[in-house]
Nucleic acid binder design. Sequence first.
DNA 1: TGCCCGATTAACT
DNA 2: GTTAATCGGGCAA
Length: 210
Amino acid sequence: MQRFAAENAINVTSPLPSAVEHMPRLRKSFFNRSVHEVAPELIGATLLFNGTGGVIVEVEAYHHTDPAAHSYGGETARNAVMFGPPGYAYVYRSYGIHWCVNFVCERAGSASAVLIRALEPTEGLPAMHRRRRTADVRLLCSGPGRLTEALGITRAHNALPLDAPPFELWARKGEPEIAAGVRIGLTKAVDLPWRYGLKGSRFLSKPFRP
DNA sequence: TGCCCGATTAACT
DNA sequence: GTTAATCGGGCAA
């Protein structure tokens, strides 16, 4: 209620969602590890942007030695954030239409990141339904392009730190059951099993093969 | 400068 | 299952 009055405001501090009450915020040091450690640990964490968002249920890891990674060919203007310190957002344009958001990991220069692919929506649902122009909650954040549209993330938010508004990241409770599989939509390194998801979630962009 | 194509999505048949 | 939409990055010329 009160929360929704601020749904369009920038840098407004939202009330603590009950789902993440008493959970610690993720700090930059959380990301200062191998992308292959961080990626599965993000499953179950809560991502909010200006008070809208939900529980991360699907991610993919991209490492600089991985031919499918944007950083594979070296630093450019687009991927410069990936070469910087961990704990920042890398936002890029996908297919000329959508925005996708990554969390930079490891250390400056290692150029690895986790693509956020799907959320279970929990906070700011009216705003997300309006931005996505759909009444179907399963179509709000189930896909990397869908979730950025639902949360209002664009190129303007590239290189922002993840431990300060408009971003909020909250640690997960307990140990969720994690599914792993090959990544989606790639033409290179198609067999690397670096997609992670919350087992059984109905908010995945695609099911995991059993 | 021109051309190809992609870490996607929605609307088709 | 197939395909159009849409555009900037990256590289060849």
